[in-house]
């Protein structure tokens, strides 16, 4: 799945060709032309949505992460995320702490000349177009917003953790203890499952996700995958990129470059 010529490629070409950004991304009906609204500057901030306007189904927010640029030992994106979202790590058993984003270190063990090569990358909710967490959630608390962001509606989450069993990326955390230092814009609480929200509260204000903004290497590109003119879509159309666990055909909204 790490080789870039799997379904990935076909899909990428398809996206490029489709232009209007329809693509087999799980959206059934999209008004052609709407994509023109989101203008694709390199890493441009999204346009803030007007008051009273719902999320735009023509848009699909995504991230492109360049693993080549991700610096060893740097945890800026993680710090930024956890500060923005008020995620703290103070439980005695570290395995019970939430981590919305984490740094993964990969050592290549495949035979060949890349053997032993070390790669770094941040890992978080992949915001799949076909999210297994949404399929399995008994109450429908796991949900995908119209613009492709996968969220947990913590007003209906009962804390059964079935979504955590279903997620192939270990992207979700369960809040194991009561909290009281939440950021007002990011409510979080005991007994519910949570994960990266792509900083919805920032996107809706026309800002970038905290991690993207904080990366000193510019390794993360945020934008509208459906908009062929956006920096992210252009980049995905021109360089080989990888979907993690492409074999599951979940069509994640987070793509990696340099794997």
């Amino acid at each position: 799945m790490t080789s870039p010529q799997t379904p990935d490629n076909a899909r990428r070409k398809f996206i490029a060709a489709a232009g209007a950004g329809v693509a087999g991304l799980g959206f059934t009906a999209i008004a052609p032309g709407l994509h023109l609204m989101a203008v694709g500057e390199a890493n441009a901030a999204p346009t803030p949505r007007k008051a009273g306007e719902p999320a735009n189904p023509a848009v699909r927010w995504g991230l492109l992460i360049d693993a080549n640029k991700c610096a060893p030992g740097c945890t800026k994106c993680i710090d930024a995320c956890h500060t923005e979202n008020g995620v703290s790590a103070n439980l005695p058993d570290p395995r019970q702490n939430s981590q919305w984003i984490r740094k993964i270190e990969l050592v290549d063990r495949r035979p060949g000349k890349t053997r032993g090569h070390v790669t770094q990358l941040p890992m978080m909710c992949q915001h799949c177009a076909e999210p297994p967490c949404v399929d399995v959630c008994p109450t429908g608390a796991s949900m995908k917003r119209a613009d492709g962001i996968v969220l947990v509606d913590r007003h209906t989450c009962i804390g059964c953790r079935y979504c955590m069993m279903a997620c192939p990326y270990k992207a979700r955390s369960f809040v194991h203890a009561p909290l009281n230092d939440q950021n007002p814009e990011v409510p979080r609480g005991k007994g519910c499952v949570e994960s990266c929200t792509l900083c919805v509260h920032r996107i809706d204000k026309g800002q970038q996700p905290a991690c993207v903004e904080s990366c000193p290497e510019g390794a993360m590109t945020f934008g509208d995958l459906n908009d062929a003119d956006s920096a992210i879509a252009k980049r995905i159309a021109s360089v080989p990129t990888t979907q993690v666990r492409a074999d599951l055909r979940l069509n994640p909204g987070v793509r990696y470059e340099g794997l």
Binding site: N85, S88, A89, R102, Q182, N183, P184, V186
Partner: peptide
């Protein structure tokens, strides 16, 4: 308020994992 911050103007810090 198990989840929502009951204080106005509160700024969360978050801690490094």
């Amino acid at each position: 308020f198990e989840c929502h911050q009951p204080k106005a103007g509160f700024k969360a810090t978050g801690v490094k994992p």
